[in-house]
Design a protein around this nucleic acid. Structure first.
Lengths: 128, 128
DNA sequence: ATTAAAATTAAGAATAATTACTAATTTAAT
DNA sequence: ATTAAATTAGTAATTATTCTTAATTTTAAT
C-alpha cells in the first residue's frame, strides 16, 4: 500500500523546512510555503508533515505549547525551549546515543530513540 | 495575588495522581476523581492540573500524542512511551542532572531543567 | 459562630489545533 | 495517450483545552 509520489507541495514543505534553523509550526509552514504554492491548503501541510515525520524524513517536536513544531533535520539532537519567548531552538551537544543504551539497561522493553528538550531562558531573555 | 486555598477538588486530584504509576490524561483523571467528587467538572480538572504543574507540585508530560499526560511525582525523571500501546511509564535511570550542566556549557542562555522521553516497544508489545 | 473578601467551582460556550471527507487534479508507469 | 494510484483543495467535523459567569466554598478576621 501507498507508494510515495513526488508531489510539488511535499517538496516545497521539505525545502522550506531546510531553510529554517528554528522549528516552525504547521501554521507558520503553511504561511510560508503559500508564497511558493499559493493554492496549497493547511490540510495538505498537516498531512505531509505527518507523512514525512512518520517515515523519519523530518522530526516532530512536542514541547508543551499548544502546537507541534517541526524540524527539517532528521538526525536526533536535543532542543531548547525558552520559557519567556517560547522560541524552540537546537542545542549543541555531543552525541547522546549513550542515553538509549543506558535506558535499555534496567528496562524490560526496547528503547529505540529519545527526545530531549531543555527548558530555561534563552540568550535574549536571560537578563530579566 | 492569589493565595492557594485548600479545595476538595484539588486535593482529590493530587491524591488520585499519587495512586497511579502511569501518567493519565485530564480526561482519565476526571473520570476517576468523579467517583469521589461526583459534581466535579472537566474544566476544574484542567484548571487544577495547570495550577499544580505551574507551582511544580506535579509534572505535565507532552509526549506527542493528542493530549497531555500528568505525573504526580514532581521529582524530575525520564519517561518511556510505547509506540504500540501508547502507554506512558516511568523509566528507571540514575540521576540525569548532569545533562543540564552539559547543556549549559556551550549555550548562551540558561538551562533550568529538561524533559527526557524515550520511545520504543514496552515489555508487553516487544514480541511483535 | 458570623461575616465579608478572595478563591474556587459547575456548566456550558468558545477557541484552537488537527483530522476526516469528497470530488477533482496530478503523478507514475505503461 | 491511457489508466490507476496518489495527492490535493476546500470545507466540515472532531478533539483537547480554555474562557466566562453566576453561584458556592474557603479563609481569616472578628
Amino acid at each position: 500500500m501507498a507508494t510515495l509520489n513526488r508531489s510539488k507541495s511535499r517538496e516545497a514543505i521539505v525545502r522550506f523546512l531546510m531553510t529554517r534553523k528554528d522549528h516552525p509550526t504547521a501554521e507558520v509552514i503553511y504561511n510560508n510555503v503559500r508564497q511558493e504554492c499559493p493554492k496549497i491548503s493547511l490540510g495538505t501541510v498537516y498531512r505531509n508533515l505527518t507523512l514525512l515525520s512518520d517515515i523519519g524524513e523530518i522530526q516532530k517536536i512536542s514541547c508543551g505549547d499548544a502546537s507541534e513544531h517541526f524540524d527539517g533535520n532528521a538526525k536526533p539532537h536535543p532542543h531548547f525551549v525558552c520559557n519567556k519567548c517560547h522560541r524552540v531552538d537546537d542545542l549543541e551537544m555531543d552525541d547522546l546515543n549513550f542515553l538509549n543504551t543506558l535506558a535499555n539497561q534496567k528496562f524490560g522493553g526496547i528503547v529505540e530513540k529519545h527526545q530531549l528538550i531543555f527548558y530555561g531562558k534563552c540568550e535574549f531573555c536571560k537578563e530579566n
